[in-house]
Design a protein around this nucleic acid. Structure first.
Lengths: 245, 245
DNA sequence: CGTAAAATTGAGCTGTCTCAATCAATGTGG
DNA sequence: CCACATTGATTGAGACAGCTCAATTTTACG
């Protein structure tokens, strides 16, 4: 049986590298054969997954959540929307990632979660997670170190926005996503899935979509990267790293 | 007895609003009469405080710490230093504040802590703190919510740097510091202690010291603020808030 | 009191933005 | 499965916010 149109191919699922699976918090799914390729059995698994459509806001700024959402399939962004109508992307969420560890300790979201592609998330119950944390020091440490990673990325983003030029910021964004996908073995040949629009890059780097287009074109003309069919190929990673300093 | 030259007046100590005191983690000091005004007794308290000089780096980027430092007196900054020589201030540390909650879960500092004024810090033992956290849910929650606050500020800074103009960023920085001091009752009349140099403001807002000088002068000419003798007086907070949007 | 650090000022430059028009790609409903 | 509507990308011309450089003055500090 091939995958139906309502279901992503197993490839795109984040389960393999999902933080919750790493914590053993997903045993039910493992037992049920979740990691097997797409199959009738798999579709029979109780679907607690919530789908989301592309380009929709999944959770609104200031919404209150009773759990911690994890992105199962598809890409999303966490966005801060300012009163002047401008938007700043705080982080790009790829499959298998927790939306934000902050929700482990606070029910209110201070930012909006917007979908890039269509996909799905699974909501992990907060009290259940907190209980797991107090019982198991391993889980506690891993979740907190995930929080530290989040914080680390935020700090680097601050430095990028405050002290780097457009070229550097964009190069760093591309390399950052590259590295994250690389860690979970999602680099194929020298290219990765890359569903972000230039608008997303602009909102993530504090630039204009117009200017992003111009910078990306210089990258293309210099044979650094190639975009095609929602994927990114890096042709000269060394020179790109140079631009990222 | 008046304060000796080697000791700040009680006014400048952060103990009154120190997070550790709030957590009851400072009972020894309380019992010994720490909260009394400057006195011979107070000076007799076992001094675990470590002094630091103005404008010095207190902890270096990538240093490994066995505890969590709390600023007792004086102001400091946490700074990210880039390879191109530029620097970005991630946060301004005022007396009574924990340097960063990240150190509760990770021994390595990823940024540098630089003093603004001279002052002192006290190092809280990591294992002792972790133990207190596991024993007392109250302490756990408070420290984690402090971490959330930190994270929150980082997110807002990202949005500021990415999507706001120089005027807005500077206005927001001034108001942010104002509000933090206000919370701990340190606004007197309509002015606050303000030891930051324009260079600090520049590094915190991602601008140049030259341009900061120009913007601040427009603020002065518009009778929004007044700087004198390391203090800041806000003359028209409403209009300043407008500029901050 | 002398030296180092900080602030000010001006002239010129440039990276990035705005506006606007056009073209390409993607998605949707009949 | 096509036609239309929407969203995204490209391009060019012009404007301006914020930068660099450099000289001078003011302030802070040992």
């Amino acid at each position: 049986m091939t995958a139906s149109s309502s279901c992503e191919p197993a490839q795109k699922s984040g389960c393999t590298n999902c933080i919750m699976r790493g914590l053993g918090l997903c045993t039910v799914l493992i037992d049920l054969g979740w990691e097997q390729p797409y199959s009738a059995e798999r579709e029979a698994i109780p679907q607690k997954k919530s789908p989301f459509a592309a380009r929709r806001t999944i959770f609104h700024q200031n919404e209150t959540l009773a759990g911690v959402p994890v992105i199962c399939e598809g890409w999303a962004t966490s966005v801060m929307k300012l009163s002047n109508g401008r938007r700043q992307i705080l982080s790009i969420l790829i499959p298998g990632e927790l939306v934000t560890c902050r929700l482990l300790f606070e029910r209110q979201l201070h930012l909006s979660i917007d979908a890039v592609t269509r996909g799905s998330y699974r909501m992990f119950d907060l009290t259940q997670l907190r209980a797991a944390m107090t019982v198991s020091p391993g889980i506690f440490d891993k979740l907190l170190s995930a929080y530290n990673d989040e914080r680390n990325r935020a700090d680097h983003l601050i430095a990028d926005l405050g002290r780097r030029t457009a070229t550097g910021r964009i190069a760093r964004l591309l390399l950052d996503i590259w590295n994250r996908l690389d860690k979970s073995g999602k680099v194929e040949g020298n290219s990765i899935e890359f569903p972000l629009r230039q608008t997303h890059i602009a909102d993530a780097t504090g630039l204009t979509n117009v200017y992003v287009s111009k910078v990306i074109n210089t990258f293309r003309n210099d044979s650094l990267v190639e975009f095609s069919d929602r994927s990114l190929k890096i042709l000269d990673i060394e020179r790109l790293r140079q631009l990222a300093m």
